[in-house]
Design a protein around this nucleic acid. Sequence first.
DNA 1: GCATTCATACTCGGATATACTCTGTCCGAGTTCTGCAGG
DNA 2: CCTGCAGAACTCGGACAGAGTATATCCGAGTATGAATGC
Lengths: 157, 157
Amino acid sequence: MKLSGGVEWAVHCCVVLSQAEAPVPAQRLAEFHGISRTYLAKHLQQLSRAGLVRSTEGRVGGYALTRPADEITVLDVVLAIEGREQAFRCTEIRQNGPLPASPQACRKACGVARAMHAAEQAWRDSLTAVTVADLAAGVEDDAGPGTFDRVREWLAT
Amino acid sequence: MKLSGGVEWAVHCCVVLSQAEAPVPAQRLAEFHGISRTYLAKHLQQLSRAGLVRSTEGRVGGYALTRPADEITVLDVVLAIEGREQAFRCTEIRQNGPLPASPQACRKACGVARAMHAAEQAWRDSLTAVTVADLAAGVEDDAGPGTFDRVREWLAT
DNA sequence: GCATTCATACTCGGATATACTCTGTCCGAGTTCTGCAGG
DNA sequence: CCTGCAGAACTCGGACAGAGTATATCCGAGTATGAATGC
């Protein structure tokens, strides 16, 4: 049970992108956050494949969000990085051994899987309730108004 | 975001142990579930270190629950296997780069970390709501009454 | 017949290899800007 | 002075190593059983 460190990078990048008017190169995003450029590029590719950001090549290229920030949930970003498969995968060990569960009983998922999946659904619901726009608003609340003005100014240089 | 396969084994083993009167050796648990004995032993050790099961050595040794099954939550088992640390670890990248967040603003956790931790808390709450006793009751519901009688009978052989 | 002792069989526990995924990096393909030459 | 073209610089994208962790396994330490032996 460990989330990739790239998740944190990706979410922060989405918040920055939500405040940029022009495409932002991976190079810029990396130095803004003080992280590895090449490795961040890998994660941005995953965001691109998931359809969350659009990449433009060329001299003034970079990354930009494909949707308004209030239509991108944190779960979207997490799933883009971590993959869409469930964290818990039932291997149906109840069907093994000397007393296997009957096919009749296996119509429905076993209780263990149900509990794990319910918990995961609660996790997803919680992440769905927060959008990138919410996070951006939170930054202005925490760091004071005008923060994103300075960010935009720095991005333009 | 991937749970260890051992989690599934551990939970199922706890359900079986909740129905056994005598200590059950790892060998027995492994063949009951059709899984590797030596690897299961590793996970049982983790349950033992977490204080969920007690191990007795010797000829009639084995594992037994230390508490009533309705006082062991699924979360207890999961944390014993996966470790107690959070899945999301904030590396505070907001403090890096050319526009670092002020120490003033860093009094509270950043919005990203708050959202991730809230989701993880929801996940834990959901797992806390289910006990091993609940799962055992579910097995009897799914596989029919008398299932655990057969299990006990097999364990005694 | 009974108590003691000793060998035995069975258990757990930690130390030990292997496979796989995450982390981190590099170079090539493609696109746009810019400078320059020609009309 | 304007237009077209070529070069160059900058971008993304996928292919390539290294490290850490999950997976799987083995052998040694410890204990209760049970039989054998002596009284």
